[in-house]
Amino acid sequence: MMEIGTKEGWREFVDAAYEKPVPATVAQLRAMAPADRSLYNQIRARYSQAGAFVKTPQYAEFQKAVRRRVYLNEHRQVGKFGLILSGEPGQGKTTTLLQIGKEHELRRRLVAQSSALDGAIPVVYVAVPAQSSARALLLEFVRFFGLPARRGVLYNELVEMVANAMQRCRTELVLVDDIHHLDLKYRANLEASDMLKQLSERCGSTFVYAGIAVQDTGMLTGAREGQIRKRFKLYDATPFSITTKQGRSDWGNLLLALEDSLCLLAQESGRILTAAKALYRLSGGEIGPLKDMLQLAALEAIEDGTEALDLREFDKELQRQQFAKQALQSG
């Protein structure tokens, strides 16, 4: 399994391309030799899990904002622009961060940009450790680049080491995940926040943060409020809503895209829309739980040979949850 928090793992992630399997009929699948059938099912699962990415309206908006800031920061000397993606678990924040980084690097390679030539590392991805300090976070950057850091190396030396690596590698985009671990009520985390700002000014990279309820971490209030709000724009990753015509259309488009990604051989295209309301209520409009439900249901359909989602099960599950809720309230 690739470790995205290193340059080797990140490169493997960017290079990975999972093609959609060639469509087959149920009869053709059953006629395959057991080994061939097993391989075909593995290819389908891999594509569904790792190859198919659904670009939601929220994703498209955030990606556009990242592109604009990368372009502008290339020409700014101080006060580099950044972005913060905040939301509750299940909103696809990490997936969004990774996909934006992957597409950015692939675009750079396509046009032979200097930031994508041999030896360059246009995108860096790190996750903030729990109870992080400035030093601990710096060591995540050191680990990503694979830099030699002797035991007892001084903090300022680490900053210099990481900043120099970003400059040499022409890093343009720095993705910092789990930023909610930097609770600025604690002094060590204040120092870590300042360290990120220092790296941004030294290297000219565009920093993009993602985390849970970032508004509650102190990054956007208190002593650092003015400093961060002036440079970083906050985007909220929110659940889908079906209270408007556009919202229902977006939800339907998401379901259709996910249905197609499952590669079920007997699934009638568009049939999933008959369970749109049940799926919405079961998932709360959140893309993470929705994908989990559909992929588990698809695996069951593959294993039992039906090759189609049993959409009635979603209605039954919703009824069971409603019954359990009513029983709890009445008890």
Score class of each variant (00 low, 15 high):
59 Y>D: 03
300 E>D: 14
27 A>V: 13
256 L>H: 03
310 D>W: 04
43 I>E: 14
255 L>W: 05
46 R>A: 13
295 Q>G: 00
293 M>L: 14
269 S>P: 06
207 F>L: 13
303 E>M: 04
70 V>D: 02
143 R>S: 13
40 Y>N: 03
306 T>F: 02
57 P>E: 04
321 Q>E: 14
142 V>Y: 08
195 M>Q: 09
106 L>A: 11
220 L>Y: 11
314 F>A: 08
131 Q>K: 14
106 L>R: 15
110 L>A: 14
188 A>E: 10
197 K>S: 12
40 Y>W: 13
45 A>D: 05
208 V>I: 15
79 G>Q: 04
273 L>S: 10
233 K>I: 07
106 L>M: 12
72 L>P: 00
190 L>H: 07
286 E>M: 07
137 L>Y: 12
203 C>W: 02
3 E>G: 03
158 L>R: 06
8 E>S: 08
200 S>Q: 11
330 S>H: 03
310 D>E: 12
326 Q>T: 07
104 H>M: 12
64 K>Q: 13
56 T>A: 10
137 L>G: 12
229 R>K: 14
146 G>C: 08
43 I>D: 09
85 L>F: 14
65 A>D: 08
323 F>C: 01
197 K>N: 05
249 S>L: 15
61 E>N: 12
133 S>T: 15
29 L>R: 13
308 A>L: 02
